[in-house]
Design a protein around this nucleic acid. Structure first.
Length: 262
DNA sequence: AACGCGTGGGT
DNA sequence: TACCCAAGCGT
């Protein structure tokens, strides 16, 4: 849930989610559409689908347990380098560098001496993180580095005035030079497919069961774009075609099966 | 390797 | 107000 989403926004929904589905088996037993529905407005709903798929895999291949090594975790859908390392380290104590956006920024500043890391994670950053990771208290190192980046060494307004390591920060020693690397990709929003997909999915989340195609036409006027987005949602597995001309969140009895109800 | 993918709060 | 950014991932 916290992939690309601030933890403060995730926390309440996570509580709700864990009360509903305390174990991988509980989530795996639910229709995938329920996962998408209860993802709410967290964003990137494909994460909900992948988390559900990961739960199914944990039931099928790991006896319903969350696997305990970064290697096994990495094989799960929706679990990449960061998430595998974070779960392995924080849940199971594995000694592995956790490289998230916060740690990247902290190490870029404190050690490398630049304001921001490059847009994409480099081999040099992986090597640096591995080199810095202590042999003792590595879990504490990972957790505290992340937290330090999240609450003090922030992107927009770092609290350098209260920084406990100001005098060893390479970026400060260098006079806090401005970032001079390639610009990060901006994410267009107005009028994009991403926005239209969000609108379509919001309607399907809010309503129970199948929604007639006509009701979806109202969320966006541009027919070509609207239908393209609907198609892409179906292709992603986020939406099912129900009967002739209705749509629903995936996995319910009637969805994709016109033979039902005989 | 660059791109597409949601949403909302902070500056 | 318009960006900017957020415990990234899959293709």
């Amino acid at each position: 849930m916290s992939q690309q989403t601030p933890v403060t926004r995730v926390a309440p929904l996570w509580q709700e989610w864990m009360a509903r589905w305390p174990t991988p088996a509980d989530l795996a037993a639910a229709p995938a559409g329920d996962a998408v529905r209860h993802w709410g407005r967290l964003g990137y709903p494909r994460r909900a689908l992948r988390l559900h798929a990961a739960a199914v895999e944990m039931v099928e291949r790991h006896d319903g347990d969350v696997p305990s090594t970064s290697e096994e975790l990495l094989a799960l859908p929706g679990v990449g380098e960061y998430t595998a390392a974070a779960v392995a380290a924080f849940a199971f104590g594995e000694r592995i560098p956790v490289i998230d956006t916060n740690i990247r920024r902290v190490e870029a500043r404190a050690v490398t001496g630049v304001q921001f890391p490059r847009p994409s994670l480099s081999a040099a950053e992986r090597a640096l993180a591995a080199e810095l990771l202590p042999h003792e208290d590595h879990v504490l190192w990972n957790a505290s580095s992340m937290e330090f980046g999240a609450v003090m060494c922030t992107a927009k307004a770092p609290a350098c005035g209260e920084c406990p390591v100001l005098d060893l920060c390479a970026w400060q020693q260098a006079g806090a030079p401005a970032y001079d690397g390639p610009a990060r990709r901006g994410q267009a929003w107005a009028g994009t497919d991403r926005m239209v997909r969000g609108k379509l999915l919001a309607v399907l989340r809010e309503r129970d069961g199948a929604v007639p195609h006509d009701d979806l036409r109202q969320v966006w006027d541009d027919e070509v774009q609207r239908e393209r987005c609907l198609d892409s949602l179906v292709a992603d597995g986020l939406v099912d075609l129900v009967g002739d001309d209705s749509f629903a969140l995936p996995g319910h009895a009637l969805a994709g099966d016109v033979r039902c109800g005989w």
